[in-house]
Design a protein around this nucleic acid. Structure first.
Length: 423
RNA sequence: GGAGAGGUGCCUGAGUGGUUUAAAGGGAUAGUCUUGAAAACUAUUGUAUCUUCACGGGUACCCAGGGUUCGAAUCCCUGCCUCUCCGCCA
């Protein structure tokens, strides 16, 4: 969440930030509630001070008669105070509900735009493959090899599920090994986190601004939700903790299955495994000091690009415009892989700098050496590989005329073969 | 799933209704002593929030949320978490 003090002192900037992010929220109403809330709090505190004083007087009272007098007087005050407290609770709830809906502010360098159509391509990297035949789409190729089975998945689980089989199933593990091998060298600690987390943590990560949010799978009976990305289980890992400055940045690479209801995307990308309810992903996450957040963001982006380059998959880097940033991010880049059959780039990676937005609600801090004060750390995250989508990119870019798939050189030693599906 | 015990500050740990302003010890930091260090002695040692130019002061926080009471770390209820035993289980 955003600092209410900041909102109070920078009202116009916050209204402007919300407008840029295309998020409709009444900041004036929030500030009115804030003022009312503080007023009530002060009155309540005065009552408390009175009560505390009376408590001491009762102890010191000379006789029972005197005691009774004070007790009777106190009861009256208490009634008033109870009434006020009810009022406070109502306002407080309203206030908090609204505060949580205020998004993180976009950084100044982020270009303004309405939605994903106004994202900006920063650079295109890698050589697109030249085929001396008509390239097929990944699903056709994989189905012909019997290695992706969406039809039977529909029978078992419904739409937007899949079976990966044979060498394509093994390709997942090759990719994971490749990732961990690359990232541990940069100090990323490998993690296998929980895929179910408490609702409260999802909320504090900025992904549940509405209680009835449709995108998240909720396990009502247990108060748990399924993660849509391991970012959501890594952030809260250090909740309520205080880092020593020397331990920052703290970098993790987390493998987990991700679950998304895809509620808003009926009819969109319904074919194959591009947009599914369940997929595996390795996510990079970093807790760092505010001053190094920008560098850390570039490092995460660099790691994403490095691994794409090693796989020799053409991609473009996209700067996400303000309207497409989402709630917690202040600045965000996507990587989009080239898909020859579809003849377009499709999103495979995303990396965000969430500044102190998540750290504030999670209460993750560090002691600044210079000021000696506790400050919120900054959180950043980025995709290492979303397995399903990168498999799509590999199949399409490495397909052969005979329907087999060449294995990217960087993955050959992990998979133990150079070609998939060679007869 | 059943039975039981717990959750107090950076750590250990006392506190079962009212000078608790959370004891005591440890740790950490600073000072004295010392050539230096250790030891010893002395002092300091949370967070949030409001108020004040400042000094300072008010309030809240003993896992979380409710409740009882003039007054709750302490009593009651609910939840979360940890531990022990039994059952089930990859």
């Amino acid at each position: 969440m955003l600092d209410i003090k900041y909102i109070r002192e920078n009202k116009e900037a916050v209204i402007e930030g919300c407008r840029k992010k295309q998020i409709k929220i009444d900041i004036n109403q929030l500030l009115e509630l804030d003022e009312k809330r503080r007023e009530l709090m002060t009155s309540l505190e005065n009552f408390s001070a009175e009560k505390n004083k009376a408590g001491k007087e009762i102890v010191a009272a000379a006789n029972d008669e005197e005691k009774q007098k004070i007790i009777v007087a106190m009861k009256k005050i208490d009634q008033k105070s109870d009434k006020l407290e009810q009022e406070f609770k109502t306002i407080d709830q309203e206030f908090n509900g609204l505060l949580f809906k205020v998004p993180n502010m976009p950084l100044e360098e982020v270009p303004e735009g309405k939605d994903d159509k106004e994202n900006i391509s920063l650079r295109k990297v890698g050589k697109k493959p030249n085929f001396d035949f008509e390239p097929k789409d990944y699903l056709t190729i994989a189905e012909n090899l019997g290695m992706i089975d969406v039809k039977r998945a529909a029978k078992v689980s419904g739409a937007r599920f899949s079976y990966l089989k044979g060498d394509i199933a093994l390709l997942e593990f090759a990719l994971i090994n490749f990732i961990f091998n690359t990232l541990t060298k940069e100090g990323f600690v490998p993690v296998v986190p929980p895929a179910m987390i408490k609702k409260e943590n999802m909320k504090d990560m900025g992904y549940l601004e509405r209680e009835d949010s449709d995108e998240v799978y909720q396990l009502e009976k247990d108060g748990l939700v399924l993660v849509g990305t391991s970012e959501q289980s890594i952030g809260p890992m250090h909740r309520d903790e205080i880092f020593a400055e020397k331990d920052l940045p703290k970098r993790y690479a987390a493998f987990s299955t991700c679950f998304r209801r895809e509620a808003g995307s009926y009819g969109k990308d319904t074919k194959g495994i591009l947009r599914v309810h369940q997929f595996d992903k390795v996510e990079m996450f970093s807790f760092c000091a505010p001053a190094s957040a920008k560098d850390e963001h570039q490092l995460i982006l660099a790691m994403e690009e490095k691994m794409m380059q090693e796989l020799k998959i053409p991609y473009q880097v996209v700067q996400i415009c303000t309207g497409d940033l989402g709630v917690p991010a202040a600045v965000k880049y996507d990587l989009e892989a080239w898909l020859p059959a579809a003849n377009c780039y499709r999103e495979t990676h995303s990396c965000s700098n969430c500044t102190d937005f998540q750290a504030r609600s999670l209460n993750i801090r560090y002691r600044d050496k210079e000021t000696g004060k506790l400050e919120f750390i900054h959180t950043l995250n980025g995709t290492a590989f979303a397995i399903g989508r990168i498999i799509i990119a590999i199949i399409e870019n490495y397909q052969q005329k005979d329907g087999s798939i060449k294995v990217p050189k960087a993955l050959q030693k992990y998979l133990g073969k150079k070609v998939i599906g060679k007869k």
